[in-house]
Every structure is written in C-alpha cells, then in structure tokens.
Design a protein around this nucleic acid. Structure first.
Lengths: 171, 171
DNA sequence: AGCAACCAGTTGCAATATGCAATTGGTAGG
DNA sequence: CCTACCAATTGCATATTGCAACTGGTTGCT
C-alpha cells in the first residue's frame, strides 16, 4: 500500500492513513449502518464499492489497527469486522464532515437524515454514541452483530437510514 | 478529474471532493502557513508536492469553489490564491483531524505544535481564527499576502510552525 | 446425497492517477 | 543582456482504481 512518511505532521499522517475515497466510507458503514460482514459492506452500501477494493481497504484498516477481524461463531467462514477505539474516535470527525457536506455540497435530502441527526445531537450525543459503539464493537463484538442491541442512539440513526436505503433500492 | 456522484450522502460527497492525499494538504498550508502563491505552496511545504500535482489540485479546488485566484498587483504573472467561506469552514475539521492524528499516529513532536495549539484553543479559538481568515482571504485578499497582518491567532500559530520548518530545512 | 444460494475474497485487465525530472514562455531587477 | 524567478506543462514510469468474472469453500434445503 502506502508507507511514504511524507512528513510527521499530524494532519498529513492522518491523510496518509485515511485520505482516500473508500476508507472512511467503510468506517461510516460499520459505524452508522452497523455493517459487520464483508457481504453487508459490499452490497448494502449506497456507493457500490467493488469487492477487490473492499478487500484491500479492510486489509489496510486491519493492518493499521482501525478495525479488528473475528470469526463469526454462527458461520465458519463468516468474519465479523469491528471498530477499535481509534476508529470510534473518528466519529466526531465524520459527523463534522457530514455537516460540512450538507452545507456546501449538493446532497440528497434523504441521505442527509443521518448527518442532520448527528449535527443536531452535538458533542453530547456523539459521546453517547461512542459509548454505544464501544459496547457493540469492543466489549461485546459478537453479540452486537444482530439486532438485540438496545442502544438508543444507534437505533435512532440506523432506523432512519436503513429505511431510506431500502426505499431507494426498490425504486 | 472526478465527478462520479456515487451517492448523495454528505460524507460521501465530501470525500469525493476532499478525499485524496493532497487537497487538504494544500488547504492546510494556505490556512495555517499563510501560503498564497504557487511557489510558496510548492517549496515551503514539508511534504514536497510535485508541481504538476499542485497545479492539478489548485485547478480542482478552484473549480469547486474552495479557493479563488487573483492577479498579484506587485508582479504581473504572480497569482494569489485565497480561501473561500466553504474552505474556511473546514478549519474545525482540520483541527480535529490533527488532534486525532496526534493521538493515534506516530507524529513528529515539532510538527505537532500547530495541532496542539489548535486543540488546546478549542472551538472558541477556532471561531476567532476563522474570523481572521475571513479578513485575510475574503475581505482583504491582496493586502493579507505579506506580513502586515495583525492577527494574533494566525501569528501565534504560524510563528511556531514556520520556525520549526526553517529549523528542519537547515538540518 | 445433491444442489442452489451464500461466504470471503482473488484474478486479469483496462482506465486513471500519481510521482519525477526536465522544460516552457514569460517577467523582474540589476 | 543576463540571471533569477514565475506559474505552470510535458513526457514517461509506476501505482492505484474500477469492473467483471471466477475461486474454493460452507450452509441449508429437499
């Protein structure tokens, strides 16, 4: 991949790690769409990522510790990808990037719901959400896969989002 | 360049516009290093961007309205690049990206000074800084080029930064 | 047992983007 | 007139992305 080390500037290093068109999309889907399997990330995303690129991104994110990979006990060849503390701490940045895009770019209203909720919620909601993510991805990464999560913020966000996605897939 | 429109999601659109390895670096140098000319951006940056790539990025940023270009009255073929309101509003995001990198990546302490000051300053300082940027880049884009700016925040930030850069160029 | 559907990827190949060095046409100052 | 500087551009090698088809394996159903 890329291990240039162009400079040790924090912004530059962050960009060397996350500054491409797909890494943050993958993290976004894991974070807000609760997508934890290869197939989920591949097919249920708006942007139709190609399988080889998804594989490369996951490998890369894995190698720098932004996600982890576990076997899914329910299916011998299924893998569960989880966020880690560093990637969970990207939440405020993703929230602000969404807010910026919503303000300055030609976004689709339906797909902006998530960004809008996050923006309205502010730092307090972000903290709450991050705690839920820690629970789901770090404390109990296996159980969090299916729907038994009682997390209110994630539930609120994904409900609106998944509904929209499915509505758009039909049409 | 790229006008895919993979989806209208705010995060995705932002990434389509800024999700590469150089665009935010250029904005960073204009914003925090007060670099307004091609030559400045080309040679006085840590990461040694190539001239063709810098030209392509500037053209791209220009085309989407994140920067503007004016003739420099002091030199007929010199151009002054300025930030616009949308790119000035990227400041909090750059500040947070810097903070994240500082926390999770192997940054160089000297080059982290800027990110540290920004982080410590918090949203209040960001507002102040953004107002200074509006003054320098929008209200009075020509005069702001050389050193007569009395802006305290920018002065504080760039002083530490430029000093470091020069120290490193010597060695 | 047999078969279709699903699983996480991999492969080959074309299209794009990036990185580097050299060069361009023009201006400024001495 | 000559050197230094200006904002790029060109040609060419390498790296990354994007697309479609395919792999080897597992699961659930009948």
């Amino acid at each position: 991949m890329e291990i240039d080390k162009r400079s040790g500037c924090p912004i530059n290093l962050s960009l060397e790690v996350l500054g491409d068109k797909w890494s943050l999309i993958v993290i976004r889907d894991m974070m807000f769409g609760n997508r934890r399997h290869f197939r989920d990330l591949l097919t249920h995303s708006e942007e139709r990522i190609a399988s080889n690129i998804l594989a490369a991104r996951l490998k890369h994110l894995l190698s720098i510790g932004l996600i982890t990979k576990r076997d899914d006990p329910s299916h011998s060849q299924k893998a569960i990808y989880s966020l880690t503390e560093p990637s969970i701490q990207l939440l405020p940045i993703l929230a602000m990037i969404g807010g910026w895009g919503r303000k300055h770019l030609p976004v689709t209203p339906e797909l902006s719901i998530r960004a809008e909720l996050l923006e309205d919620g502010g730092p307090i909601m972000w903290e709450e959400f991050m705690n839920e993510l820690r629970e789901i991805h770090i404390t109990n990464p296996i159980g969090g896969t299916n729907g038994q999560v009682a997390s209110s913020v994630l539930a609120r966000l994904t409900a609106a989002y998944i509904q929209t996605c499915e509505r758009m897939e039909e049409s």
